[in-house]
Nucleic acid binder design. Structure first.
Length: 152
DNA sequence: GCCAACGTTGGC
DNA sequence: GCCAACGTTGGC
């Protein structure tokens, strides 16, 4: 089972929003970056995903969600009224994909970015690289264990 | 709010 | 295909 990490602004969709809807799925949509989209299409039902809070007071990894539905065309791209509308996208040739995810658990504590940066073994994780804007990325089993262990 | 780093667009 | 200009991301 593959593992992943997604970035989100908690004001948009936080781990607590997932927790509040525990037992039901939330669409992960609005991704408009090709590399991130390509990773999303590789997600499978049951994959675990770290949720990272960005652009906020407490930046870091906050919890874990599970993929409940693999990639399907992101509806927003077809809707002219959607902020995620893409005029070059058609239902026959969709450009962007969404997945569904559901709450699994919060980490015992939030792991701040500076802590992630200082941990050995995470050097290859795009998240900790300066200037990286990739919002969906794979996490190796080794990286996953390092982060879980750090959470306590 | 600032600004460096990045991805995308479009003229050539 | 190059690359300057632009808009966005995201830590600080």
């Amino acid at each position: 089972m593959a593992k992943w990490l997604v970035k989100t602004e908690p004001s948009e969709c936080s781990i607590d929003d997932f927790a509040a809807k525990s037992g039901s799925s939330i669409p992960w949509d609005g991704v408009r970056n090709y590399q991130a989209r390509n990773f999303m299409t590789q997600m499978a039902e049951g994959d675990e995903v770290f949720v990272y809070h960005s652009s906020c007071k407490h930046i870091g990894i906050a919890g874990i969600v599970t993929v409940t539905r693999s990639a399907y065309p992101d509806p927003g791209q077809f809707d002219p009224k959607s902020p995620y509308h893409d005029s070059k996208s058609t239902p026959e040739k969709p450009r962007w994909q969404a997945v569904d995810m559901a709450f699994e658990r919060k980490l015992p504590r939030l792991i701040p970015l500076d802590e992630l940066k200082s941990l050995p073994g995470l050097d290859n994780l795009p998240l900790v690289k300066k200037g990286s804007r990739l919002s969906v990325m794979p996490v190796s089993d080794e990286e996953w264990q390092i982060i879980l262990k750090q959470a306590g």
